[in-house]
Design a protein around this nucleic acid. Structure first.
Lengths: 240, 240
DNA sequence: TCTTATTGGGCTAGTGTTAGACCATTGACG
DNA sequence: CGTCAATGGTCTAACACTAGCCCAATAAGA
């Protein structure tokens, strides 16, 4: 762990790819996380938010259209409509393949990162004094995910986890948690959603919320760690 | 905390600026964190690592040269040599100005982010079974920072904190901790280094290492939180 | 003192990206 | 049944960035 090894961390590529590629990636994230469920914002608006030109954005939308994620309609009340249904749970073989495709190191990295930022977020949130409104928001998200039907489950689970980071009020932390989640979205989507698992997760979600509302950082951290440990162990199991 | 608020997190700008600006920022990070103390790697090598063209890199180096951070020499055994000495602690007025310049929200965001990722990293590290070598590395860094003279203190303190993230083996986590640290580097540099503070921090550093080596995630998290709380409170104090 | 490997300095042709303007289409609504 | 506001579609000129090449300078070592 000498100076050189630290250097490579900071001297990593300045840009992950060209603007087109990064834009496709971003839009896919928005779609896969279920943050947009009907249609994308108008091109002009979206381009401004992403800080790119309309030309580049349009190329990205075109690519997603070709890949079957979007259907674009012209004219007033037109736009880029989602034609994407969250993938149904696949065969175990496919999950194994997905995990192996990702690479051992990348998976380990992503799981470790997620464990750290989500535990950190929960701990920070449990240290903060929350307004009544924020406490209600947290309870609402818990209620939503814990009473979700299988089709909405992943989306609402994502929303719940992200809400913890968002409620801290830190944009940086929220972005990191979103990033961490994104890196394993495809894998999570490949895991069958079993009623038993949903119930188990529900208990853990409730424990997290309880710890946060009780303002107990230690308990919050522990609850999140236990919750993520399960998913992590499952995915890691496919690498053996 | 509706869908829209989550959207703005993911639909943030794809690129933080143009390649030139981002490169200047990166190089400044390397310099300010003390990861390079003599001269930068050769242009061709550096450009490859940063994933940019030599032209762009040279523009950035030129800017840093004009700003007095670098001195470039041609020919074999030449290169971009550092002419940067870590700023001496300034007057309290300057620190106050620096904090105010940064903006209340940005500072709060950075401190929250740092608290989350560093606590998360320590917790994860304390959960892991470390090799003898890694335990030794951790002890070495502790020893280094705790016996540093004032001139080297910031650099070695940075190295210690980063080592915790690095030892988890997660590149993503390391990058996040480096990012968090960078966002407050300028402020930290403005804080006078008092022997009393160094000693106090030394005790806390030792507590962190002890908790990690004892494989006690709770204690590790708590030790880091307490350590960061001090700095956070100090900086926040200038906002009142 | 000369050679030479290594390094920064500079140029060019080609591609990626942007801003901004204008055109084409659509559907709600008067 | 026409109007029109909102939206996607297209074009162009300018700028940013890159890859690759060759030149210029330097200092260690023969």
């Amino acid at each position: 762990m000498d100076e050189v090894s630290r250097l490579v961390t900071v001297l990593r590529p300045v840009r992950a790819g060209n603007a087109f590629e990064e834009t496709v990636e971003r839009l896919l994230q928005v779609i896969k996380l279920g943050l947009v469920t009907e249609k994308l914002p108008p091109e002009r608006e979206l381009a401004a938010q992403l800080g790119i030109s309309r030309v580049t954005l349009r190329e990205a939308i075109r690519a997603l259209q070709d890949a079957g994620y979007l259907s674009v309609r012209r004219g007033r009340y037109g736009g880029a409509f989602l034609t994407y249904a969250p993938p149904r749970p696949r065969q175990e073989d496919e999950l194994r393949r997905a995990v192996v495709d990702m690479g051992t190191d990348d998976l380990e990295d992503a799981l470790t990162f997620r464990m750290a930022v989500e535990c950190g977020a929960a701990q920070v949130l449990a240290t903060t004094e929350l307004t009544r409104e924020r406490r209600d928001t947290l309870r609402e998200r818990l209620q939503a995910v814990n009473s979700a039907n299988p089709d909405d489950y992943r989306r609402l689970d994502t929303a719940f986890h992200l809400a913890i980071a968002e409620l801290t009020g830190s944009a940086l932390l929220t972005a990191s948690c979103a990033d961490a989640r994104l890196r394993i979205t495809d894998l999570l989507d490949a895991i069958p959603i079993l009623q038993r698992n949903i119930e188990h997760a529900g208990v853990q979600h409730a424990a997290i919320v309880a710890a946060v509302l009780a303002r107990d950082p230690e308990a919050a951290r522990r609850a999140v760690a236990e919750h993520l440990e399960g998913t992590g162990a499952l995915l890691r199991g496919f690498l053996a």
